[in-house]
Design a protein around this nucleic acid. Structure first.
Length: 271
DNA sequence: ACTGGCTCCTGAGGGC
DNA sequence: TGCCCTCAGGAGCCAG
């Protein structure tokens, strides 16, 4: 489900309610996520104070005074605030109770998400240690992409979706950014020139930034921490529009499978 | 070092 | 109504 804008939307929805709160209880109903949730998670966490909710790539970092909860939403996960005594829904796997705040529920039908507890610096955790730069932060630009792409034969779409290169660019936004930059997704990463990587980096920033502003993209059921859907779907020019006319030239958009992912592009505008 | 393919899992939607 | 097939917003892992 969530790409970077959806994760950031979740963070913004949760932080005002949870920052500074004391964790009074944690319940794991279903530990079988991407990695098993340790039995000891509640006893490790309860009694700790949540200092702040941060985001790194598509991971949410719940920084407590005594450690850090690293949460990933996988493809179908969500973290929502619900009133106490809200009936359990299917796939509500974990619940956290904070003093003076609604309950925090982790729901994930496909269970591709994960929860890790660390007491060392989360940046050193194996899930985070190899990650590339944040696309909306400093240290990401066309020069970086161009340099890392040298000699690479992988398709440029897979290249920008590789979290070691740049984080947070999932299938929707990779598709949109390549369309905006006029680059064909199947082109080898090493065959894209510097000027075009400048345009691509700018397109990635623009697309992700706009999506964050609009609360992310709700395809079927994404909701932010406040339970509201995202509105970026209406802005999608390419993703999910295979066969429909290109908004720039009117040609039918082509739909292909690339690296096991649905890929849409305009055969005329994207070269 | 790269690359492509497979995998985890449930649910929705289309065709028959 | 039901069954079977395909596909879905991620990304770690593995063989070649």
């Amino acid at each position: 489900m969530p790409e970077l804008p959806e994760v950031e939307t979740t963070r913004r929805g949760l932080a005002p309610h949870l920052d500074g709160r004391l964790l009074t209880a944690a319940l794991v109903r279903e530990p079988r996520l991407r990695w098993p949730v340790p039995d000891a998670l509640p006893q490790l966490m309860v009694g700790g104070r949540l200092e702040r909710v941060e985001r790194r790539a598509k991971y949410l970092l719940f920084r407590f005074d005594r450690g850090c909860l690293i949460a990933h939403l996988g493809m179908s996960g969500s973290l929502r605030l619900v009133p106490e005594h809200t009936p359990w829904r299917t796939h509500d796997h974990v619940e956290f109770a904070f003093e003076g705040a609604p309950r925090l529920r982790y729901n994930d039908p496909r269970r591709f998400g994960s929860l890790h507890w660390v007491t060392d610096a989360p940046e050193d955790h194996f899930l985070l240690s190899g990650l590339g730069p944040e696309p909306l932060g400093a240290g990401f630009d066309g020069a970086l992409l161009h340099r890392l792409a040298r000699g690479r034969r992988v398709a440029v779409k897979a290249f920008v979706m590789d979290a070691r290169i740049v984080v947070g660019v999932g299938n929707i936004y990779a598709t949109e950014a390549l369309f905006m930059a006029g680059i064909r997704p199947t082109r080898a990463a090493g065959q894209v020139g510097r000027a075009r990587y400048d345009r691509l980096a700018e397109a990635i920033r623009t697309v992700l930034g706009r999506a964050v502003t609009m609360g992310g993209t709700t395809l079927r059921d994404f909701v932010g921490g406040d339970g509201k859907p995202g509105y970026f779907r209406q802005s999608l020019a390419c993703y999910g529009r295979g066969g429909e006319p290109c908004v720039q030239c009117g040609q039918p958009l082509r739909s292909e499978r690339l690296a096991q992912r649905a890929t849409v592009f305009c055969p005329r505008c994207q070269r």
